[in-house]
């Protein structure tokens, strides 16, 4: 039985793998939000569950193929019924919330036909902390505790 919420990075990695197998041509995806923090944790072999679990992942894409697949994973779809969370497509303009040089710190990976770009945890947390909601603060504390952030 799948988890009914988005709490660990393997769920995100599995979704990206699944998505990469659903597209028929090369595509790009930038992952932001708490799903991206979870992805970083999983990528670094950190098995830590996100406090205040998320109900969605926030991708940005310029690829028609990827966007189509994401539409079939929106709230209310079979995807959501199966996974317990959904996909929430975000516009490219949301990247303006990050520092201008975020790309220089981002992690870029190839997952099948998909080129995945994930901004660094430090950058992912900036819009969250601008919002400053209790849940966002908890995510910052979590990222700090599990060592996702670079020490300055």
């Amino acid at each position: 039985m799948p988890r009914r919420e988005l709490k660990n990075g393997k769920q995100v990695a599995d979704w990206l793998e699944e998505l990469s197998q659903s597209i028929s041509q090369l595509g790009n995806l930038i992952l932001i939000g708490s799903g991206a923090l979870l992805w970083h944790a999983h990528d670094r072999g950190i098995n830590a569950e996100l406090p205040e679990a998320s109900m969605d992942v926030d991708p940005i894409t310029d690829s028609d193929d990827v966007a189509r697949v994401c539409y079939d994973s929106l709230i209310g779809t079979d995807f959501e019924r199966e996974h317990g969370w959904h996909v929430n497509l975000m516009p490219k303009t949301v990247l303006n919330e990050f520092p201008a040089d975020w790309k220089s710190r981002a992690v870029v990976r190839r997952v099948g036909l998909l080129t995945l770009t994930v901004p660094a945890p430090e950058d992912l947390l900036i819009p969250k902390l601008k919002r400053n909601e209790p849940r966002d603060i908890k995510h910052w504390e979590w990222a700090t505790q599990i060592g996702l952030l670079r020490k300055t």
């Binding site: 303009t93 303006n96 919330e97 902390l129 601008k130 952030l149």
Partner: peptide
């Protein structure tokens, strides 16, 4: 970014086109 230097709310922005 260390434990004590969490960004503040001072840089809150709106989407550029409103």
């Amino acid at each position: 970014m260390g434990d004590t230097d969490r960004p503040s709310q001072k840089d809150v922005t709106m989407p550029p086109n409103g």
